[in-house]
Design a protein around this nucleic acid. Structure first.
Length: 262
DNA sequence: TTGTGTTTTATTGCCTCC
DNA sequence: GGAGGCAATAAAACACAA
């Protein structure tokens, strides 16, 4: 509980002995019991005619002028030094305790508003991130679907034992697909930061997925493995269940399903 | 007029600082 | 231990729709 002294003592006493709890006692013309009034007399030891008439009034809202002045003072400094409190109280015809309470409540309102603003900013940020995440999920699904189709075609063609010309066709189909999506902003719309794929070329340079894949195809053409026909393993690709696993910068794709001998 | 929700003023209890 | 701050809460005052 706050401790009170001097002119605050009467307010404090009122709070300790609220009039409503004296309903069953003899009530005087001010609405308070004789016992309660006598107690006030004993404590203050002086004429209470003015002070009690102020205190015993019903709660009133502060006037427009009082609120404006308090607001003005609050803007300068939202903490009250004792001297400033007394001066403000005298200036506005209030009890120093009323000024202190007003500042306390005002700080509470300020804090509440600030929290609401912070919450709003965080919510906006969350919504934007969620949207980005959804877009990336859609990109992932589209790319996975494209990849699956290409794998199926490749598997069919390799089963027929003739893949040199068709491979080139598939590479350009894949490249066109990626290129179209890039041009329409459907792919890499976040500046490629989230979907870059590093090639495992010897010089360590990075490249986008289309070029890397094309290089791999071209490498595979020049590669000669005597007595060993190329055997893709399409089912292993499904193990790359998440977008991040497949396209993140932290883990370059191994493409081991293309090159099982790797 | 009245019920209901919101705002403002004030109290209470706990905590920290000096 | 006193002074003052804060969170939670009460209660009066006010706004407003039905």
């Amino acid at each position: 509980m706050e401790q009170f002294s001097g002119s605050d003592s009467l307010d404090a006493l009122i709070s300790i002995c609220p009039p409503k709890e004296k309903k069953d006692e003899q009530i005087n013309t001010h609405g308070y019991s004789e016992e309660f009034r006598a107690m006030l007399d004993r404590i203050n030891g002086e004429d209470l005619s003015y002070e009690t008439s102020q205190v015993l009034e019903k709660r009133r809202r502060l006037s427009l002028y009082q609120v404006k002045e308090l607001e003005r003072s609050f803007e300068v400094e939202n903490r009250l030094e004792p001297d400033r409190k007394v001066n403000l109280a005298e200036e506005l015809g209030l009890q120093p305790r009323q000024v202190a309470i007003w500042f306390q409540n005002r700080r509470t309102r300020l804090k509440t508003k600030q929290l609401q603003r912070d919450f709003s900013l965080l919510k906006d940020s969350y919504d934007a991130l969620k949207l980005d995440c959804n877009n990336l999920e859609q990109e992932k699904e589209a790319l996975t679907s494209t990849l699956r189709e290409l794998k199926e075609k490749l598997y069919r063609q390799s089963s027929e034992g003739n893949h040199s010309v068709e491979e080139e066709s598939l590479i350009s189909e894949f490249d066109n697909n990626v290129s179209d999506r890039r041009q329409t902003g459907d792919l890499f719309e976040n500046g490629e930061k989230a979907v870059r794929v590093y090639s495992d070329s010897k010089d360590g340079s990075s490249d986008c997925v289309s070029n890397s894949l094309a290089d791999r195809f071209r490498d595979s053409e020049s590669r000669e493995v005597p007595g060993k026909a190329y055997q893709p393993q399409p089912t292993r690709m499904e193990e790359q269940s998440t977008y991040c696993n497949f396209f993140s910068v932290d883990q370059a794709p191994t493409l081991h399903w293309y090159f099982p001998e790797q």
